[in-house]
């Protein structure tokens, strides 16, 4: 039996790494990867909670989270490619103005 606390620690560690990455890194794709890590950590925690309570609905929530994360990633990539027309760079520092 895997201790629930250990899964929580793993989830917290992944979440913390993702959060640090969001604040430290400056290129757009790595920021998307960090957001993916955050969502992954939450998913792991939901699955662990669902298993420890013997409740299947938690896995349904993870399904919704995964779908949202996928859409978020696709929209992020689309925005990056759209911004590429103006400045061919992945550095988010270069995109400080939101002119239409």
């Amino acid at each position: 039996m895997i201790p629930f606390e250990h899964i929580m620690i793993l989830s917290a560690a992944i979440f913390l790494l993702g959060l640090i990455g969001l604040f430290v890194r400056k290129d757009a794709l790595t920021l998307l990867v960090c957001m993916g890590l955050l969502i992954m950590a939450v998913g792991v925690l939901w699955i662990a909670v669902a298993k420890s309570f013997g409740e299947m609905l938690g896995q349904g929530v993870v399904l919704a989270i995964i779908a949202t994360a996928f859409v978020q990633g696709c929209v992020g990539v689309m925005l990056i490619l759209k911004l590429q027309v103006h400045k061919p760079s992945l550095q988010v520092k270069q995109f400080t103005e939101l002119k239409g």
């Binding site: 794709l29 998307l32 993916g36 699955i47 896995q59 399904l63 995964i66 996928f70």
Partner: peptide, 30 residues
């Protein structure tokens, strides 16, 4: 899979491998 969520595991792997491929192609563009 180890935490007995095999269906979620398959969906997660398929969607996120696809997402990483999209990221990869975007990185190649730049």
């Amino acid at each position: 899979v180890l935490l007995q969520a095999s269906a979620i595991a398959v969906i997660y792997m398929l969607l996120f491998c696809l997402l990483v491929s999209i990221y990869w192609v975007t990185a190649i563009v730049f």
